[in-house]
Amino acid sequence: MKLSLVDMKPGQNGVIEKVMGGPGFAAKLGHIGLHRGKRIKKLSSIFRRGPVTVCIDNFQVAIGYGKAMRIMVEVDDGEENSTGR
């Protein structure tokens, strides 16, 4: 299932599928290590429209709401069921 980072639930894992928005934005995310095909785990959302924190490899990144909405993740199948959707 494809979800934006904002819609993912804390604890869910997945693979970055697409980064929407300008090429500059995708490039910048790429530099910090978030690029297509990268495995990612969502840690938390700070309130409804706050930043999202994720874990990639060994590090954590906080992404503001406006940007997190543009990052689409293919969420692992097993995870989806286990969180009760």
């Binding site: 910048k28 995310l29 910090i32 930043p51 924190t53 590090f59 954590q60 990144v61 906080a62 992404i63 503001g64 709401y65 406006g66 940007k67 997190a68």
Partner: peptide, 10 residues
């Protein structure tokens, strides 16, 4: 102001 993308150190 675009929203942030920042690394959180351990």
């Amino acid at each position: 102001t675009p929203s942030m993308v920042v690394e959180i150190p351990p």
